[in-house]
Design a protein around this nucleic acid. Structure first.
Length: 794
RNA sequence: GCCCGAGUGGCGGAAUUGGUAUACGCGGCGGACUUAAAAUCCGCUUCCCUUACCGGAUUAUGAGUUCGAGUCUCAUCUCGGGCACCA
């Protein structure tokens, strides 16, 4: 009697892997390469959760599969350690972020090892390690040198609790992504990366990516490319001009007023004395108002400046208004309002009783009952352009504007530049210093890294500067003999994770961020797996990849070939797991309760399609344990049969599991192995059956599979199936009458190749005859591939 | 409001190009082993009618294309996700 004891088996193999390092990737190798990675975790104090386990297990399953297929696999691991949680914890407890991070990493590493992942541990990276962030700073300087890292003063998202600015991507529904506080707008001088310089390429190349449609659509929407025109409206009785952006130059004749955003710089000049006070109050209120308030109250508000502009096409005088429904950060911060064909302008015109002129005739075949038709059609009330279709009119009008030098074709993006400075301590210092005149200078590369000093008081304040501002030794720096003051902002953590995939290919390089030869051998990453950061991180890595390709450091322009976006694992009640709800399943508890890591890993891959959310089931995991137990029993506690009687199911299983691995259907791969095992229980298993089983099982339950392979004295080479062995002597033929299944007949395999024979056998069957007797056969359809006959009778 | 995605047993889900719907697992029921329980093993388990056989219905709803539809088309409903005054 031998019993499956997962905890003992797993300890044995993990010790062996620790000693023998079988997962080390080789930089120079003739085998085809395969670079896989999960989105590296933020090592929280709570340790691994079941979501990590699902994410890491998918990558591990593929890494082991490709290794068994004879590929040279790189499967590294690392930690994304800068960020607010560690710093906030430090403020609360007095334990330094450095210390907390070290403790958490040690715990994460221990737990990941307990799960038996095939990680090349010699390539471990940590973004808050000076050896790493030295090169993050180097990356920053390359962008700075090319003008793609710049400073600008404007209104920014500010989190009043975290006391720092945030990137657009970090504001979710008007709230801080970290602490959930409603964000404010604050006018500040900040650092930006010019991601918009790559907007077109980032958009165009999305279609070529092997990524989920969902993510691709989100990125497209985020970039938000709009084609249109920019044009000037002269201000009546003044030299000033108001420049507007529009996607519909064909509606220019219908522009009956202009609207400026409350932040617009011309407001003061255009506002007449009579309304100056009112205007000032309106604008300052609007700017102060949080974005949430602006969104919630969609009732249109606005103030007339008292000035008029001239519609360049028809010379008409139109009023200039200020309203907060126009956004300062998009286009030119001013619009031409066409109330007849834009819902928002229509609402505004209705409320303030402004002129509405129809200039587009709705085609008869378009069903649209809206008060204002916003589609395309034939132009009316548009002078020389009457009778043209929108598309033609657009072109002609823009051409005219260009000729008159008052406008031109223009492409605008919703995406803004990436705000990267943070007024917090626990981040990568920005390698910049200021001279006496406040001019920014790069810290020379030979002075990198700019070390983050150890301090006692991490607390941010409302000064708009990080805690580093209080550290005198840090502030002083000499560059080329000149005394300067260091930048005290730190980098957004997303900057640290925008290049880590390339560092994996050369993690210990002290002379450069990565070696060109190595990075171009391994990267781009073949498979990247994660369940978060659809627009932020996944857009930023693409941006940096294009930039470093332009600079000659990379030979590829897209960093990630295939993206697997895995779903969440929810609590048994279907709700999100959270400490406060007390419904958290701790994966380490599941392991130590006796199930072991193999059961946990296999269960999380079996739970459902990897890209769908799934609810944890405390009962269902027992089913996976029983399956592994049966694998063990077959190998260690049952007599092997001598005859090779399971040829068909064995080959079928190899084929199914192999094909499922290639299409990432992990759940059905496990189901196929379960079927195989059930069959072996019925028929008895040969040594060959069990070798096959262990080899197929290894990516899922590596410890048990190794134990089985050791007992069977077998290697782990991925098995191949024999197509010829899949066919039995006798096969089942299905007969339908009028599309309804009426009989299943066993026929010789040879007969199933012969349409006439199939038809003859089908018609001869007594059950079929019951349905065909006395009726006329209209049609007979024979599909040998499906072993199916359909007889149509009347 | 707009843009995606999805609706299959009591539950998680399977069905790869239009061809046997409900694989696999959970739960449930029955049995074997056991003094007993657990563990393990075997069998049944979409619904309706039926002791059983036979039969009928069924992939959110309604229509359509087809010899044949979970799969394709159209409409409707429901749920999930994303964006949300972007001119």
């Amino acid at each position: 009697m031998s019993q499956y004891k997962p905890l003992e088996i797993e300890e044995k193999w993990q010790e062996r892997w620790e000693k023998e390092k079988p997962f080390a990737a080789k930089d120079n190798d003739n085998r085809p390469k395969m670079f896989l990675a999960e989105m590296f975790p933020y090592p929280s104090g709570a340790g691994l959760h079941v979501g990590h386990v699902r994410n890491f297990s998918i990558v591990d399953c593929l890494a082991r599969f490709y290794t068994q297929q004879g590929m040279n696999v790189l499967r590294p691991f690392g930690y994304d350690t800068f960020g607010l949680p560690a710093e906030n914890y430090a403020i609360k407890t007095g334990i330094s972020p450095q210390e907390v991070t070290k403790t958490n990493i040690d715990n994460f590493r221990k737990q990941a090892k307990r799960l038996g992942y095939a990680i090349d541990w010699d390539r471990e990276i940590n973004t808050s390690d000076p050896e790493y962030y030295k090169w993050t700073q180097w990356c920053f300087l390359q962008l700075f040198k090319k003008g793609l890292a710049y400073q600008a003063e404007s209104y920014q998202w500010w989190c009043p609790v975290d006391q720092t600015v945030l990137a657009n991507e970090q504001v979710e529904n008007g709230h801080c992504w970290r602490c959930g506080t409603e964000v404010e707008k604050k006018k500040m001088k900040q650092w930006f990366f010019k991601i918009t310089a790559y907007a077109d390429e980032l958009l165009e190349e999305i279609d070529s990516l092997d990524w989920p449609e969902k993510i691709k659509t989100m990125q497209k929407n985020w970039i938000g490319r709009s084609e249109g025109a920019e044009l000037d409206f002269a201000v009546d009785g003044s030299d000033e001009k108001v420049r507007v952006f529009t996607t519909r130059p064909d509606t220019l004749f219908g522009a009956t007023f202009l609207v400026l955003a409350p932040e617009h710089p011309l407001i003061e000049k255009l506002t007449t004395e009579k309304v100056a006070k009112k205007m000032q109050k309106y604008c300052s209120d609007a700017i102060k108002k949080s974005e949430i308030e602006r969104q919630e109250n969609k009732e249109k508000t606005g103030v007339f400046t008292g000035s008029y502009a001239i519609n360049p096409l028809n010379g008409k005088k139109i009023p200039i208004w200020v309203a907060d429904y126009v956004l300062s950060g998009y286009g030119t911060g001013a619009i031409m309002a066409v109330p007849a064909h834009d819902e928002r302008d229509y609402e505004f015109a209705q409320k303030f009783d402004l002129e509405i002129i129809k200039v587009i005739e709705k085609p008869d075949d378009v069903a649209d009952d809206d008060a204002c038709y916003h589609g395309e059609g034939e132009l009316v009330n548009s002078g020389d352009f009457n009778g043209m279709q929108s598309a033609e009119a657009r072109e002609k009008i823009v051409k005219w504007l260009k000729k008159e030098q008052i406008g031109e074709r223009k492409v605008t993006y919703r995406m803004r530049d990436w705000l990267i400075s943070r007024q917090r301590y626990w981040g990568c210092p920005i390698p910049i210093a200021y001279d006496k005149n406040g001019e920014a200078h790069a810290i020379p590369e030979d002075q990198l890294p700019v070390l983050l000093p150890k301090i006692d008081d991490y607390k941010p304040d409302s000064s708009g500067r990080s805690a580093l501002a209080k550290c005198d030794e840090f502030l002083k720096v000499t560059i080329d003999g000149e005394e300067m003051t260091r930048e005290t902002d730190t980098l957004d953590g997303y900057a640290c994770s925008s290049w880590y995939l390339w560092r994996y290919t050369d993690p210990h390089n002290a002379k450069e961020a990565w070696n060109k030869e190595k990075v171009n051998y391994w990267a781009p990453t073949d498979v990247y797996c994660g369940g978060d950061h659809a627009v932020a991180h996944l857009l930023y890595v693409r941006f940096w990849c294009k930039f470093f390709a332009d600079e000659g450091y990379l030979d590829f322009r897209e960093p990630i070939k295939k993206l697997l976006y895995n779903g969440y694992i929810n609590a048994p009640d279907g709700k999100k797991m959270s400490k406060s709800k007390g419904n958290v399943i701790d994966p380490l508890d599941v392991i130590s309760s006796g199930y072991g890591a193999d059961t946990l890993r296999t269960y999380e891959l079996f739970i459902g399609p990897y890209d769908q959310d799934a609810a944890w089931s405390t009962e269902a995991i027992g089913g996976v344990y029983r399956f592994l137990n049966r694998c063990y029993t077959l190998t260690f506690d049952k007599e092997y049969i001598k005859e090779d009687t399971n040829l068909i199911i064995r080959n079928k299983t190899i084929k199914k599991v192999t094909e499922d691995m290639y299409r990432n259907y992990f759940n059905t791969a496990v189901a196929a192995m379960m079927e195989f095992v059930n069959e072996l229980y019925k028929n008895g298993a040969s040594a060959e059956d069990l070798k096959t089983l262990a080899r197929l099982l290894k990516p899922f339950a590596p410890h048990l599979a190794c134990e089985m392979l050791e007992k069977l004295d077998a290697d782990d080479e991925w098995p191949k199936w024999d197509e010829a062995a899949l066919v039995a002597d006798e096969v089942e033929m299905v007969v339908q009458v009028n599309g309804k299944l009426r009989a299943r007949i066993m026929i010789a395999a040879d007969d199933a190749e012969d349409q006439a024979k199939m038809e003859e056998l089908a018609l001869a069957d007594s059950r079929v005859k019951t349905y065909t007797d006395g009726k006329t056969i209209v049609k007979k359809i024979v599909i040998p591939k499906n072993r199916l006959v359909n007889i149509v009778v009347k």
